[in-house]
Write a protein that binds this DNA or RNA. Structure first.
Lengths: 224, 224
DNA sequence: AGTATGTATATTGTATACAAAATGCAGGAG
DNA sequence: CTCCTGCATTTTGTATACAATATACATACT
């Protein structure tokens, strides 16, 4: 784990929420690794709070699938096996298809603009070789689509599913050099949504997600 | 709320888990109603534990979508609007289709047997006019299918989605007298799975879920 | 009468204290 | 040398104490 996890004491949010966000970020960025233990006293000391908000944050991480706890032994960052990832990908591919189809129906002009600019920023990040920006732009791209569905529960679920892959996906973006393919796929998605062609959109999104499956599973296999 | 919520002090589970299960049950059964506040001190007194496990249980309920909390005001049982229910149903219908198709591929002989006996018990409950048993049999029926997918994450998600409808669904089972249709639908699903006809299974499951949509939404509309 | 303000009370937020279980290690028996 | 046992330490589980905020009601002012 990084030595100094720091709380960004923003607004007047309950500490549990701040702790939750902090730990979540740290896990997703890989600063705390799968299998690493989440010890309350240690975290409390590191973050300068008491155990209570730490414990509540852990309960929340648990329900998000980012942590696993064994009674009387405590929590650790959830590991994902290849099978887990496969399971998640099957679900995600199904729901992503649904999402993009709903987006075809419900997307607003403003959101379409956001989608295009996310796509632009994705391309730029690749040219600039900026991986952090690249990942962010990719998240933004899909976020616009999720929001455009008009189905908040779906948005939350898809964000959660994406989250579970994210740690591994960052590695994949580093390794996989088929960026042109990614750009093309994104562009096809934009076009399909713009043309409100639900069938096409679903098809393209499906292969977009499935393309990642192989790569991400390779990453996991290496780690096992 | 019921006056005496009681803890079933089973094994040596952490209290937070016992509290969580207890509250969850109470919410699903309608013993604690949507919009009702979940006050820590009150619940702690009622269940004979301190506030700490109550708080942790609430954090878990929150992530399951069964409770909503406003900082500095506390938690209450989540209300569902008609729109919420529509959103959930869209997702559930998609994932139920997926589930039944996966089940066609992966179901074991034993599970097929369980499916048939769940179906039997469903019919018997209707004849006996036992609503509690009826609801349980229905849950069991779908549970077998979820388990048969071999995709644990999917199983968890579908259980969660079902859970969110459950409170309203109980009412619907009381009102809606189209039991023969339900039996027929279940039988069609069993047959499709037995014949490993994925297309048919998906189609039947889809209409099965969608049939409930109208009824459940009516219940909600009445309550609003 | 209506609004504003202050105060009491209820309730959540956070920290800490104490209890119980798990873990690791040392020392001894075989 | 290996395995078992028991103690010390760590860590979680639960309860409680204290702080801060929100809520409700009463009172005063316009």
């Amino acid at each position: 784990m990084t030595d100094s996890l720091q709380l960004t004491m923003n607004a007047y949010l309950p500490l549990r929420d701040v702790v939750f966000q902090t730990l979540r970020e740290a896990i997703l960025k890989g600063e705390i690794k799968p299998g690493e233990r989440l010890m309350e006293l240690q975290l409390a000391a590191k973050l300068g709070v008491s155990r209570t908000p730490i414990r509540e944050a852990i309960r929340m991480l648990e329900q998000e699938g980012l942590a696993v706890t064994v009674p009387r032994r405590g929590a650790e960052v959830a590991k994902m096996t290849e099978k887990d990832m496969e399971d998640v990908l099957v679900i995600r591919s199904t729901l992503d298809r649904l999402a993009v189809q709903l987006a075809c129906d419900n997307i607003t002009a403003e959101q379409l603009g956001q989608l295009k600019s996310a796509q632009k920023s994705f391309e730029n990040s690749i040219q600039a070789g900026n991986l952090k920006k690249l990942a962010e732009a990719d998240v933004a791209f899909h976020d616009v689509i999720y929001k455009a569905t008009g189905n908040i529960k779906l948005e939350i679920m898809l964000n959660n599913l994406r989250e579970q892959m994210y740690r591994y996906r960052v590695e994949y973006l580093k390794k996989d050099k088929t960026y042109p393919a990614l750009i093309r796929e994104h562009q096809e998605i934009v076009d399909a949504i713009k043309g409100k062609d639900k069938e096409l959109a679903a098809k393209v999104m499906d292969s977009h997600v499935l393309n990642q499956a192989v790569a991400v599973k390779n990453i996991i296999r290496e780690q096992e």
